[in-house]
Amino acid sequence: MKDSEGIVIPKNYLFGETPEDALPLDCGKKLYPVNIRYETYGHLDENGKNAILILHALSGDAHVAGHHKEDDKKPGWWNEMVGPGKPFDTKKYFIVCSNIIGGCSGSTGPRSVNPATGKRYNMTFPVITIADMVRAQRRLMEHLGIKKWLTIAGGSMGGMQALEWAFSYPECVQSVIAIATTSRLSPQSIAFDWVGREAIMSDPNWQNGNYEDTLPEKGLSTAR
């Protein structure tokens, strides 16, 4: 664990426990309650202005650096970039990375339990947009007492979220680092996404999206 953040403990932020505090979605529905799984590195300064938000790509998670356990074989997915003396220097900056809503790594998503039914959402989970993801991150920002992001960095779908931050909340962002991303998908990209979805849904373990413990791993592997 030399030259890394060492052991990092994931955190959870729960909000929207009542309909009045629900997260409004672009599809017209409201999501509540909402849990956001996130990790932080470094320390927030007194004026709350040394904060950097790092956003993961489609299959990423909040574990951007360090290890969860002593015997972890792999560190976080951007460990080379985040840590003491690294480009995102945790001796200078307060780094935040959260799992997107609709994801499958701790934040509220299709595998979460719908409080209205007591069962997993599965295919009843509402459609989530990039703007919805950012709207939830804005709530996390308020919870952490951050006044303005020094920068927001992300690649691929993470870069899309970074651009959405600049568009929807320009007063909250000083700068954006958008890597290998776009503000609009081309027809070819949409077609590739369709092929990936078909691969997942063709896996017998897909079970129309209502699978429990047996995952459509072959379909997921083909899709990625």
Rank of each mutant, 00 (worst) to 15 (best):
A166E: 01
I101D: 08
W78F: 07
G158R: 05
P126Q: 13
H63Q: 13
L140G: 00
K147M: 07
K69V: 08
Y169G: 02
K69M: 05
S168G: 06
I52S: 07
T108H: 05
S168H: 06
R120L: 10
N47R: 14
N99H: 09
P115D: 12
M133F: 04
K86F: 12
L144K: 00
P115Y: 13
N47I: 05
T129C: 08
M81G: 12
C104M: 10
G83R: 11
P126S: 07
D132S: 01
W149R: 12
S168W: 06
C104G: 03
S112I: 10
E142W: 04
G109R: 08
G76T: 12
I52D: 05
K74P: 00
D72S: 06
W77R: 04
H68Q: 09
E164Y: 07
S105G: 05
V113N: 01
G102Q: 09
L140N: 03
P84Q: 11
G85R: 12
G118Y: 15
F94E: 01
P126M: 04
M133C: 14
P115F: 13
K74N: 14
G159Q: 02
M157L: 11
T90R: 09
I100T: 15
G102N: 06
Y169P: 00
A153F: 02
S98R: 02
N50Y: 14
K49D: 15
H56R: 06
N79E: 06
A57L: 05
V64L: 06
K91N: 09
I101G: 11
L53T: 00
F125H: 10
N122F: 15
S156N: 05
E142V: 00
I128P: 07
P75Q: 05
G145Q: 00
G103V: 03
